[in-house]
């Protein structure tokens, strides 16, 4: 009992996730700055931002629904932190693994987007509402390619549990190389989930102030920012378990090092995408996701089905 509470809240649960997501945000911002030929923020910048926001006044619009307005940031944060518990980080088994946990993780990662939508909706501000509708429109575009991409490796492995997936790829490491198309699709779809360039349409600060978060200030905004920072780490951990299932058999120190190398690699890829592209329009985004990303993800599934039928 005490042991699982420690695992959930301290290590490798909530507190540990907070620390690595602040570190991930720093890496993301620093590399972004270096790619733009800037010096970039100091190492404590995400921490300072978070502490400052926690010390600020909380303003709630008069028309807003207090329960929803205050509850949704906590809801988003809790959903992401829960998803983290079901992902195998360095040991081949996650903390509370069970059959079909990959589906649960994917749906828990969808919840923050729903929370962003509801937060914008209940803010009763025009800008927030436009941002909310955009984030929901975007959800329908990137979610299907993301699910197809992440579930494709599970088709070869013939299991829907993350630990089963890792066990399978430890026996057949070469087959993990077949999933690179799905990895490519998923990492682009992750940008949409994180609402980052080129899919930062819901937050587009030059058009609609700050999207869903327009009315949020202080600690509630800090929670939303934390949820997004955590989502990056949780997404990177999920991809590292699904697409790069290496290093799980190593001794503990080696396995942790392999985990860190893998998530830093995925964060760097996401940062590179953010630097290279400009913001799309919402119609271009939906068109891109359905015309290109979804077919590529389907191709990945076709390849995996063929491999499963012929090789295995």
């Amino acid at each position: 009992m005490i042991h699982s509470l420690f695992a959930i809240f301290i290590f490798p649960g909530f507190l540990f996730l907070c620390v690595i997501s602040l570190a991930a945000e720093f890496i993301d911002r620093k590399v972004y700055a270096r790619l733009q030929n800037r010096v970039g923020p100091p190492w404590f910048q995400p921490l300072a931002d978070m502490i400052k926001l926690f010390g600020k006044e909380d303003i709630m619009p008069e028309e807003a629904n207090p329960l929803m307005f205050k509850g949704l940031p906590i809801f988003a944060l809790a959903a992401v932190a829960t998803a983290f518990l079901y992902i195998p980080l360095w040991s081949p088994e996650s903390l509370f693994s069970f059959d079909c946990d990959i589906i649960v993780v994917l749906y828990l990662l969808t919840l923050p987007t729903i929370a962003f939508f509801l937060a914008g909706w209940y803010s009763t501000s025009l800008y927030a509402m436009i941002g909310a509708i955009r984030s929901l429109t975007q959800l329908f575009a990137y979610e299907v390619p993301l699910f197809l991409g992440v579930l494709a490796p599970a088709i070869i492995a013939n299991t829907w549990s993350l630990s089963g997936l890792i066990a399978f790829y430890r026996i057949h490491p070469v087959l993990a190389a077949c999933n690179m198309l799905g990895f490519f699709v998923s990492i682009i779809a992750l940008q949409g989930k994180l609402e980052k360039v080129p899919f930062d349409i819901p937050e587009a600060e030059t058009e609609i102030v700050a999207g869903s978060f327009t009315e949020y200030s202080g600690r509630l905004l800090a929670m939303f920012r934390m949820a997004i920072a955590m989502e990056l780490v949780v997404g990177a951990s999920l991809f590292s378990a699904v697409f790069l299932p290496f290093g799980f058999g190593l001794p503990l120190a080696g396995a942790i090092a392999a985990y860190i190398v893998k998530i830093v690699f995925i964060i760097l890829l996401s940062c590179l995408i953010r630097t290279l592209f400009a913001r799309m329009r919402i119609d271009q985004m939906v068109e891109f996701c359905w015309k290109y990303l979804a077919p590529i993800a389907l191709t990945q599934i076709l390849i995996n089905l063929l491999i499963k039928g012929m090789v295995l």
């Binding site: 600020k56 600060e205 102030v209 700050a210 978060f213 327009t214 009315e215 949020y216 905004l221």
Partner: peptide, 8 residues
């Protein structure tokens, strides 16, 4: 920042 709510 775009929103006055976020700015210091």
């Amino acid at each position: 920042k775009g929103s006055p709510r976020h700015a210091d």
